[in-house]
């Protein structure tokens, strides 16, 4: 009945596995983080899913600008909204994690500030879309802005934290990387979790885009 049921169920299965296994496995004993390292399986996956969604929307925006097909505009905007959703989940899980390791919900960390500002850029995308009435113009202008927003995302999450002098996040600004400290059992949970969340993100995106198309047909 449902098209592509196998990959959708694979995604759900991978996440379910990561949720159960993420709690059950033995984790290495690390200072400060201790058992909260398990949040890695949930928090980091949100950012991976968000990055994939924004990347997808970049691809569709470029496609829209080269072909002017309304279907690409639907995909681009829906994947931005979906990415915002996963980004907010990533912020929330990160804030809870920060409360228990760094002692505060919000710290003045380049990675955190970058994430906040790039989320703002994408929220501005939503505002921009709602402020233009004419359909073709809205699609074109928001596609142009979307490319700018992706550039900001890359600068904020990829470049600036690495340039910064100090960062609380592992792997940035002279801090040791957890990726090196990640032992084999943790990898066996972490990678499936990332893949699973990305698959489910695409599923949600597909559902949203199909819903938009249905609504358009009705109108």
């Amino acid at each position: 009945m449902i098209k592509g049921l196998w990959w959708k169920l694979t995604g759900l299965g991978l996440i379910l596995y990561s949720i159960v296994a993420g709690q059950m496995i033995e984790v290495p004993e690390l200072p400060v983080i201790h058992e909260t390292i398990r949040n890695l399986f949930y928090h980091v996956c949100m950012w991976f899913a968000m990055f994939t969604m924004f990347g997808t929307s970049l691809v569709y925006s470029i496609k829209y600008l080269t072909g002017n097909k309304p279907k690409n505009d639907i995909m681009a905007s829906e994947s931005v909204y979906n990415g915002i959703f996963f980004g907010i989940l990533g912020l929330i899980t990160g804030m809870i994690w920060a409360k228990f390791t760094w002692g505060d919900f919000w710290t003045n960390d380049p990675q955190l500030n970058g994430a906040a500002v790039s989320m703002m850029a994408y929220l501005a995308y939503a505002v921009l879309r709602s402020s233009i009435d004419e359909k073709a113009m809205r699609a074109r202008v928001s596609a142009v802005y979307n490319i700018f927003a992706f550039m900001l995302l890359v600068i904020f999450l990829g470049v600036l934290p690495r340039l910064a002098d100090s960062s609380l996040h592992p792997g940035k600004g002279g801090n040791s990387s957890t990726m090196q400290g990640l032992d084999l059992t943790m990898r066996l949970v972490f990678y499936p979790a990332v893949i699973g969340w990305i698959i489910v993100a695409f599923w949600v995106l597909q559902i949203r885009a199909r819903k938009r198309r249905l609504l358009q047909n009705v109108n």
Partner: peptide
């Protein structure tokens, strides 16, 4: 729109 663009 301008605020996030000029922050970096």
């Amino acid at each position: 729109l301008g605020f996030p663009v000029v922050v970096p």
